[in-house]
Nucleic acid binder design. Sequence first.
DNA 1: ATTACATATCGATATTTATAGATTTGATAA
DNA 2: TTATCAAATCTATAAATATCGATATGTAAT
Lengths: 100, 100
Amino acid sequence: MDIIKINASLANAARYDILRWLKDPENNFPPHKEVSGFGDGVCVSFIKDKSGLSQSTISHYLNMMENAQLVIATRIGKWTYYKRNEATLAAYFKALQEEI
Amino acid sequence: MDIIKINASLANAARYDILRWLKDPENNFPPHKEVSGFGDGVCVSFIKDKSGLSQSTISHYLNMMENAQLVIATRIGKWTYYKRNEATLAAYFKALQEEI
DNA sequence: ATTACATATCGATATTTATAGATTTGATAA
DNA sequence: TTATCAAATCTATAAATATCGATATGTAAT
């Protein structure tokens, strides 16, 4: 886990928002027609719609966040779903509190 | 308190290190000849020496961190001492845990 | 095979950040 | 009041980030 990389990921309001939205998908996104529930997270299009940013920007941001291990991507059919990586987040909080 | 601004401050290894060093000045810095103890923190020169970065860079970083309310500056004589702003740090941890 | 669609990648540009050297400012001491 | 020293600010450049439109890729349906 790279704390600096995580901090950089969270140093942008759009990405910070995405992480918060993914904490409560039911109340932040519509249901997906292909899957039931949000077990694998939320598809890129919904995140794009909610953020108001372009598809390429969101794809790039999600890739950054995956690289920082903040989210986990799962491809199902044509869609890629993103959910939070709670293990990293827990480790991040712990490390932050211990280190700084 | 601006979480994004704080995250940006902590998205750089040198600044992250500074905040950690200031947590334990006794073990990270020499005693200052003008003041006893580290009640007001550590002077810029010592932080510069330890970081290996230039004086202007460190001054700039400390200014950023002060702007994010991560540190508090106190000028005494020719020296400016920087210490952690524990109130912000506590509020930051709390907000982080609640929000993300 | 061809089409359609969701997402990823590429290429480009504007903005921000990282960093340093030079200069200025503020404070003390001679 | 001048010299000195610590720190802040200014100026400059290289690198990274933000963001988009265009194009490519992978998957599924026809």
